[in-house]
């Protein structure tokens, strides 16, 4: 897009006073130095003037009071709840609202995933893994049995002696092996 094309798109807004002071200065400076863009400005001004004259002439003949009365009546009129709801839904699902709802959904999903740290025990309604995980174990020469009992989700570390005479005080149950 050339500089002239960009400026020409802004000329209308400039003439309507919709641009910022900086943008206005930039458009004004360009138009002053560019014959083609100045011609566009001139045509737009002419069009505006013609439209203004035409509308002003027609407006003088229009009776506005009944129109304003109708507007006021509609403003004061109480709408039924279903129409209110329809209006709310229409407003909600218009484009800008949807644009806002995308990050909101992302935030909601992320919050859902981090919910377990705020509500321990909750995880998508399912059962939590209560089993203990044994990272390391050193029983100093003794035998070790590891049991994971599914029903009660219990992890058992069981120490036992399977060498005779090492611990005279030990009972048979602990000498011969794990008790499960």
């Amino acid at each position: 897009m050339s500089n002239c094309e960009i400026i020409r798109e802004s000329i209308g807004s400039w003439l309507d006073g919709e641009l910022s002071p900086g943008e206005s200065d930039s458009v004004r400076a360009h138009v002053a130095g560019c014959g083609d863009c100045d011609e566009v400005r001139r045509q737009l001004e002419k069009l505006q003037m013609v439209l203004k004259e035409e509308l002003a002439g027609k407006a003088a003949r229009i009776e506005f009071m009944p129109f304003w009365r109708e507007v006021q009546q509609r403003i004061n009129q109480k709408r039924p709840w279903h129409e209110e709801l329809r209006g709310w839904c229409r407003d909600f699902f218009t484009a800008p609202r949807i644009a806002w709802s995308v990050p909101a959904v992302i935030a909601l999903v992320l919050a859902l995933f981090s919910l377990d740290s705020y509500l321990p025990g909750w995880r998508f309604g399912g059962a939590r893994n209560n089993f203990a995980a044994v990272d390391s174990i050193d029983a100093y020469g003794r035998s070790v049995a590891l049991l994971r009992e599914n029903e009660s989700k219990t992890t058992v570390i069981w120490l036992y002696q399977d060498q005779e005479g090492e611990n005279d005080a030990a009972e048979d149950a602990t000498k011969s092996g794990p008790a499960f």
Binding site: D135, D138, I157
Partner: peptide, 10 residues
């Protein structure tokens, strides 16, 4: 020492 272990529990 009888046993040394590191366990992760809920």
């Amino acid at each position: 020492p009888i046993v040394d272990t590191t366990v992760k529990i809920a």
